[in-house]
Design a protein around this nucleic acid. Structure first.
Lengths: 202, 202
DNA sequence: CGCAGATTTGACAGCCATCAAGGTACGTGG
DNA sequence: CCACGTACCTTGATGGCTGTCAAATCTGCG
């Protein structure tokens, strides 16, 4: 399969909601996010995309997506156009199944996001976001002593949790003062995992 | 295909989250809802299921679902077990495609739900819920003079919008007083569609 | 009629948004 | 190396939306 390598600087939008799209992107390096644009210029971030992730598993069955994709850091990725993707899926049953699994996972993540936004406090939402990112980095074996890459700005956390930047700053500040986490030089360290989990799971 | 007809009285749970499930239900008559149970006894309703709807399009690829299904009204439905479903899907490409389309739709509904819960006011969320139900009933040709079946209790609206019953009561009450809607004998009438849309779309 | 569940209303409190100002980090060009 | 601009972060003051608690009324049903 021909790989089309691409690059986008941080803050660049690589897919725009409601425009026809004919390709799917695989992240090679850097972070991106998928979000729904909302009136008044705000947005709801639905998921963060890490190296190895795919932008949209649903591409095969929809003309256009209602989500935009934006680079958070400088981003290296490559794309498959829809025809190539369909070919790959029909050629190999295993790939097809993996794709469907991924799809189900995404849906279930989204459901949990809705539950979080509807029923949890700011502190809980932020704790759960951090814990989810920690878990994904543990799976990739990228965590050492609770420390992992964290290029998110408060703006991203705010857009993902449905809060304002100001309030995110307060909550993160409080977590820092309580010795739960530490953020420095684009890395986050979880200092008190049990307490963070207890906040998130209540 | 053998149809296994079933009945559940209102308020009965027909699928329980995190239990293995081997069948998928098609609603024949009545309303149900899919929800995520949360600690402290609350829940997030993800979708309302109307006659013709299917409980879960993802059944084929997951052992257990994290959502429960509960009858809102007395409910008539039938089930296909997983083997039957897989057979039907592989036998007919059209059915398979329809299923995938449905799947994508569900995911996109969920994404919009997350956006609503994260970024919209109580009034907007409730207006949008009513408008979404209106739209689904228009598609089924079940709306006459803006009036359609509405068996939801305030509790359901509250659980779907992430609000409390008390607050839902206030907002619905205000909408009634403003002449936007009317609810009586399990039917809802939209009296001022443009205004309701303008509230929902801001 | 009586009871359980549902709805409505009032009083009050708390969480989070908004507005505003000042501080910090970082890249760019002189 | 320094000046400067832009984005980003922090902190305080204030207010509004929505939750919580409580009690009264209503509805449906046996």
């Amino acid at each position: 399969v021909a790989h089309l390598h691409k690059f986008a600087p941080k803050r660049r939008t690589i897919y725009r909601a409601n425009e026809a799209y004919s390709s799917v992107a695989f992240i090679r390096d850097g972070w991106a996010c998928a979000y729904i644009p909302l009136p008044k210029g705000s947005r709801q971030i639905l998921s963060f995309l890490l190296p190895g992730d795919i932008t949209s598993a649903a591409a095969v069955f929809q003309e256009r997506s209602e989500t935009s994709i934006e680079a958070i850091t400088d981003l290296h990725y490559f794309t498959l156009n829809k025809a190539q993707l369909i070919e790959a899926l029909s050629a190999n049953q295993k790939i097809f199944n993996a794709f469907c699994k991924l799809w189900v996972e995404r849906k279930s993540e989204m459901a949990n996001l809705a539950a979080d936004l509807g029923h949890r406090s700011a502190e809980q939402r932020i704790a759960r976001l951090i814990l989810a990112l920690l878990k994904r980095h543990i799976e990739r074996d990228l965590v050492h002593d609770g420390r992992f890459p964290f290029p998110l700005r408060l703006r991203h956390i705010a857009d993902a949790t449905g809060l304002t930047v100001v309030h995110v700053s307060r909550v993160i500040g409080a977590m820092r003062k309580l010795g739960l986490i530490k953020i420095e030089r684009r890395f986050l360290t979880v200092l008190d995992l049990p307490e963070l989990q207890s906040i998130g799971n209540s």
